[in-house]
Design a protein around this nucleic acid. Sequence first.
DNA 1: GCGATTCTAGGGTAAGAACCCTAAATACCG
DNA 2: CGGTATTTAGGGTTCTTACCCTAGAATCGC
Lengths: 212, 212
Amino acid sequence: MRTRDRILETALRLFNEQGYGAVTTAALAAECGIAEGNLWYHFKTKHALLEALSERFAAMLEARLAMPASGDALEDYVQLLAVAMHEFRSFRFFFRDQPTYGEHSELVRARAPQWLERSFDQLEARLVALADSGLLDWPRERLRDLAINATIILRYGLEHYRELGVPTEAGSGTVRRTLERHLTLFEHRLTPAAAARLHGALAEIESAALAA
Amino acid sequence: MRTRDRILETALRLFNEQGYGAVTTAALAAECGIAEGNLWYHFKTKHALLEALSERFAAMLEARLAMPASGDALEDYVQLLAVAMHEFRSFRFFFRDQPTYGEHSELVRARAPQWLERSFDQLEARLVALADSGLLDWPRERLRDLAINATIILRYGLEHYRELGVPTEAGSGTVRRTLERHLTLFEHRLTPAAAARLHGALAEIESAALAA
DNA sequence: GCGATTCTAGGGTAAGAACCCTAAATACCG
DNA sequence: CGGTATTTAGGGTTCTTACCCTAGAATCGC
């Protein structure tokens, strides 16, 4: 792996764990196992790290929002869960720390609202597909609310479990717990086969998140 | 108002708005309209501010958890909403900024998990009362999940709306929005009169939060 | 009115943090 | 192999921040 990428991966991890402001450039360099001068070779300022991470985040998010539906409602839902959870987890400091940066990442700040609305749209469309396939019994006019509530739970699940004192590091099962938590919103309205499939998918999603 | 209290109220507001780490003691003093030396007269360190706020938070939270139910299921629910939302809003930086303090507020950290579990218990009991009164049609075995999901939405609603780019300062209607958001979880299973009462209570709750 | 408490103004310190600089060593790639 | 790119080590600067210190003024409360 190129050093520049290693720096970004490590910065992302530390920012998520400790918050942007609490991660010193000296600590980041040490965590990467490089001299601090090397960090400055690759990035002009600490903020440049943030900007680079913003671009990665934006690319990932846009890719997720552009994901086509295959037509298999259940598998499409599972795939969306996998991708969205990976993203929410991977870049959670962006939203949590927003008041902290001083100078905000303008890229993220400007687009967060529309990204979120499009996330609702996307999840709603997947839920509509489930309902239209007869896998989910839910009135059409309430699917939007379900999509929004599910998004909130998925988005904030990790924070929720941190608050609950449950370990949240990779491999701790928190992604799976978050997914299960969101399923409680509607699993009783799924067909038994669909519910079983979704539950079965949770371990796969967590494993995939670990491997990524 | 005594200066010490003014300092704490102002610190709380700024910490909520900007994050603990981003609020300098110089800015805090200026916002209070006092000389910085006066701040140090009242508080030995910045962290002492955090500890003092922790104690207030804990007292408020314990009082909320100890709230007796009057027996009127609907009014008890409304009252709990009012108190809990006020608390979630008033002390939101405590949870959001937890990775940022460096030295955590041990008081909050040690107790957050049990506070949260007891919050679930409390909300569940209120929902049970609604169901037992025939105001809410919801299977008993799923009321716990409803309580947890509602708590997450109430807890993180303000962050959610901030992410959505909706103004969140006092008076902006975000408390009301958050309350409405949580109602979408179960309002369709309330009796029409109960639903109307809860919706009607939202403006009251927001007004009360503003007056506080 | 007086002693105690609170507040001010203005100067200061130490530590930490982001980032700079430079020369030399090391690694990479065609 | 040689030129280029990357990395190191070690020294440094500037700015910011939390907090200190002091003497005197202002306020408070009995």
